[in-house]
Design a protein around this nucleic acid. Structure first.
Length: 295
DNA sequence: TCGGCCCTGGGG
DNA sequence: CCCCAGGGCCGA
């Protein structure tokens, strides 16, 4: 679940709790993660000091010394991952995979029931960067070049939903914020990127930034498992315009929110505010749809 | 570009 | 029991 706003919240929460702390020891479980923690890494992190923590897309980078040639931990929360710093005395929950015992009685824990996430050790910053290159991580949404975004969207024959979920176009947007950004920009998630006008592409870019920024101020969204770095839940789920609101009234026009599957993901939108009847080239079904509505 | 798959758990 | 879920990778 964790998308950019949730990951950013985790990083901001953890920063005052772990930066400057020394890792005394490592405990790890036997359950296999997407990429398992390797026992040989224990000795490499024991005794090191956490000097910085930052976010890139949906990834968290923990710097074990500021120098570029110093090791890093790379964390991805997958669907249900939690990365928290809590009092070491706090009872250990189930599905806990890696725990770093810190000084001052704290413990940095990685928990993930579904195990789609991972926590790995990398020898230096270059190794982290090459990893990002391998997965084709695109630019950060808050630093998008307007021309780049227009071009990336308008050259694509894919749906807006598919484009927004593509981490290579933008790093950090997931299912919730893709739907919310389409809602704010009043664009149907089924629209093809190539059908957008320049103005619409700009509107979408502005909506993405606005939605992500607002979600961060609410500490992200908690549907079920998500918690920030200190264990607090998010609050943006109470601000959703369309996500998970199928059948409920649109906040702008009261039409019932609809839901379809796009790119294999549930996609929510207001049929009135985000109508398909614009420039979507291939909507042969459109007339049928209208008939249905009139009925 | 899609579906299937990796997993667990919650809800109907 | 079935279906669904914030993500991403792999092969048809």
């Amino acid at each position: 679940m964790p998308e950019l706003p949730e990951v950013e919240t985790v990083v901001r929460d953890l920063r005052p709790l772990v930066v400057g702390r020394t890792i005394r020891a490592v405990r790890y479980g036997s359950k296999k993660l997407r990429e398992p923690w390797q026992p040989k890494w224990n000795a490499r992190v024991a005794g090191t000091r956490i000097e910085a923590i930052r976010r890139r897309g949906k990834w968290i980078v923990v710097e074990l010394a500021r120098r570029a040639d110093a090791p890093r931990l790379l964390v991805h929360l997958g669907m249900t991952g939690q990365f928290t710093a809590v009092p070491a005395a706090q009872e250990r929950p189930d599905h806990l995979h890696v725990a770093f015992e810190l000084d001052r009685g704290r413990e940095l824990r990685f928990r993930d029931p579904r195990r789609f996430g991972c926590l790995t050790w990398h020898s230096d910053e270059a190794a982290v960067q090459s990893r990002f290159t391998e997965v084709g991580l695109g630019p950060e949404p808050f630093a998008i070049d307007g021309a780049y975004f227009r071009q990336a969207v308008r050259k694509s024959a894919r749906t807006l939903k598919a484009i927004l979920l593509d981490q290579g176009v933008l790093a950090g947007v997931g299912n919730i914020y893709a739907d919310e950004a389409c809602s704010v920009s009043q664009l149907h998630p089924k629209r093809r990127g190539a059908s957008l006008t320049l103005a619409e592409a700009d509107r979408l870019r502005a909506a993405i930034e606005a939605v992500l920024a607002k979600a961060i101020t609410h500490r992200g969204s908690t549907i079920r498992d998500y918690v920030g770095g200190s264990g607090l839940r998010g609050g943006f789920q109470n601000e959703f315009r369309v996500y998970g609101r199928t059948g409920e009234p649109c906040l702008a026009c009261a039409a019932p929110i609809e839901c379809v599957r796009l790119s294999g993901r549930a996609s929510h939108y207001c049929p009135a505010c985000q109508g398909t009847q614009h420039k979507d080239t291939k909507s042969a079904q459109r007339p049928q749809r209208r008939m249905k509505k009139i009925d």
